[in-house]
């Protein structure tokens, strides 16, 4: 931790979080390397959102610490971007698509200062990237679920961060948006950014992420997808609750072995 640049984007040490004396997360240890596209998976109530909120300083940990780029959150704030769950805001709020994406620039602006032309240009660039420029003047309630998610991602892009936390960006979006999002995530990863993405769909997780984090109050496993995505691990995380998992895992394992046979 002597050289700032060499510090990992995310380091968590023995993190425990409790709500009303009930532990939600227990003893999580984690180091994420730069340029990782991490999928965070676990059943409902496993503490996925809590983990992100604790990392970003919204929920105080009862034990342990979090460091981002070797610093506490409030010092690394400009290097960290956030995409909250789509349902967490009121979409009838009187703002336009443009206004929301502009919010991504606020932390670079600092208090009181108004956005200038440079910021507006940056906002339009982000909107273009997500093919939302035509809708810039729309009130956000008049958008489809997929378009709303694109707005949130455009806002995250406007933050120009090195490390992103995204809470279920794939929830309730159409197929075209899902594809656009995963392309964007890969693009960001190739640009050396680190992405920490909460994901619900077991069937696509293996395709989308190069690193997986399995969470169920405790950290069950963390590492390269091919090592973590095993029947045994999934069973550990989800328990017997999802029978389909076994099938998914077997089918995927078969697919993987077939791929290996074909590739050489």
């Amino acid at each position: 931790m002597t050289k700032k640049n060499a510090a990992a984007p995310l380091e968590i040490h023995d993190l425990t979080v409790t709500y009303h004396r009930q532990p939600v997360l227990y003893g999580v240890d984690l180091i994420v390397d730069p340029g990782c596209l991490v999928g965070v998976m676990g059943p409902n109530g496993a503490g996925k959102s809590t983990l992100i909120k604790t990392i970003m300083g919204m929920v105080p940990p009862s034990h342990g610490w979090v460091k981002l780029f070797g610093q506490p959150f409030h010092k690394a704030i400009t290097r960290v971007g956030y995409v909250p769950q789509r349902e967490s805001v009121d979409w009838d709020f009187p703002v336009s698509v443009f206004d929301v994406v502009m919010m991504g620039r606020y932390k670079r602006l600092g208090l009181i200062r108004r956005p200038g032309k440079k910021d507006r240009d940056a906002v339009y660039e982000c909107l273009e990237k997500l093919k939302m420029a035509d809708l810039a003047d729309r009130q956000i309630g008049n958008l489809s679920g997929g378009q709303q998610q694109r707005v949130f991602l455009a806002r995250a892009l406007a933050q120009e961060s090195d490390l992103y936390f995204m809470d279920e960006p794939f929830a309730g979006v159409d197929a075209a948006t899902e594809l656009a999002i995963i392309e964007l995530l890969r693009e960001l990863k190739d640009a050396g950014k680190t992405l920490f993405v909460v994901h619900h769909d077991v069937t696509t997780a293996r395709k989308y992420f190069d690193t997986l984090l399995l969470l169920n109050m405790r950290l069950v496993d963390f590492g390269p997808t091919e090592k973590v995505f095993t029947q045994q691990n999934l069973h550990k995380v989800y328990g017997g609750r999802l029978n389909i998992l076994t099938e998914v895992a077997t089918a995927d394992a078969q697919q993987a072995s077939e791929d290996k046979l074909e590739s050489p």
């Binding site: 300083g57 919204m58 703002v95 919010m103």
Partner: peptide, 18 residues
């Protein structure tokens, strides 16, 4: 600007140092 973002999306605002 700060009132707008913190009224619309308080969680996001906290992560933006507002």
């Amino acid at each position: 600007k700060e009132l707008l973002v913190s009224s619309f999306d308080p969680d996001f605002s906290r992560t933006s140092g507002i």
